[in-house]
Design a protein around this nucleic acid. Structure first.
Lengths: 143, 143
DNA sequence: AATAGATGTATGATATATCATGAAGGTTGC
DNA sequence: GCAACCTTCATGATATATCATACATCTATT
């Protein structure tokens, strides 16, 4: 049975959480995807990362990050200015509108997490996190 | 920190597992994606499901299943025959080539799971699965 | 039997994931 | 200085996810 396979349960849980979280953002009338929100948030907290470094933090590859940044820029949630000392890169800055959206999403994200974790104790989530980290490491090729 | 957020760990673990699993299938020279494999496997086990029912089992929506079935059919891993009693549907059958690929992937999938769960006890995986199911239910709107 | 509603499938639009590659800029070693 | 290499970013191709919708067909009701 598929239902007995751990990775099926993992996939199922994260997909349902993403659908739930996105639906709540949509319902609040905020026009942003979870992935865009995640990247925007990372840029706000640290505006001197390369696309590859951003990708490492949000677990996306550089190509995905590039396209998300393009969308965020087109939607004016982000601006890119030339950097004098390196012609390849740009300085990314979250705009006022971007900040407004981050602020609006924040309470929704907190509420989403709380609802999703209802019935789980601190120890439950700690152990869950530890097991997930172990799986991650098991699947990561040693350099 | 993102790393303290449970859903970040969840996303990270499942993504890394999928990359790991797909890389091992690719390395074996088998031309199929994990998602295609999953759908093909469900059809083998039960060849009278609608696309929506298949989607329910593999946690995809009907549109995704339709496109995966089209690819599997184009690659001749699956054939669709008209059903006399219902002009909307077709009878899906896994071809010999499809069966060959399922057989080739099977030991790789078992090995992937074993490696990914290295260091986790039976109780660990059981508890993990139970917590994931709880999260799923928490994120599922009550009808 | 005709019609309204339900079901099954296909597909368009947009977003993301992955791999590969191209193009431009930067760094190092000589 | 320059050649080889590395880094950064953009983009094409393909696969999947999601929502909406179109279309055909089936079912139920009258």
């Amino acid at each position: 049975m598929l239902s007995n396979i751990l990775f099926y349960s993992l996939d199922k849980a994260i997909k349902q959480y993403r659908r739930f979280a996105q639906a709540n953002i949509d319902r609040a009338g905020i026009a942003i995807t979870i992935d865009q929100w995640l990247v925007l948030r990372v840029i706000l907290e640290n505006d001197d990362l390369t696309q590859t470094e951003i990708g490492d933090r949000v677990f996306k590859d550089q190509a995905s990050v590039a396209r998300i940044i393009r969308l965020l820029t087109e939607r004016s949630l982000l601006v890119a200015e030339a950097l004098p000392h390196d012609g390849r890169r740009t300085q990314l800055r979250v705009t006022a509108e971007g900040q407004r959206i981050l602020d609006a999403v924040h309470p929704i994200v907190l509420s989403n997490r709380q609802i999703a974790l209802r019935g789980l104790s601190e120890e439950d989530t700690a152990q869950l996190q530890q097991l997930l980290e172990r799986i991650y490491l098991n699947c990561t090729p040693q350099p």
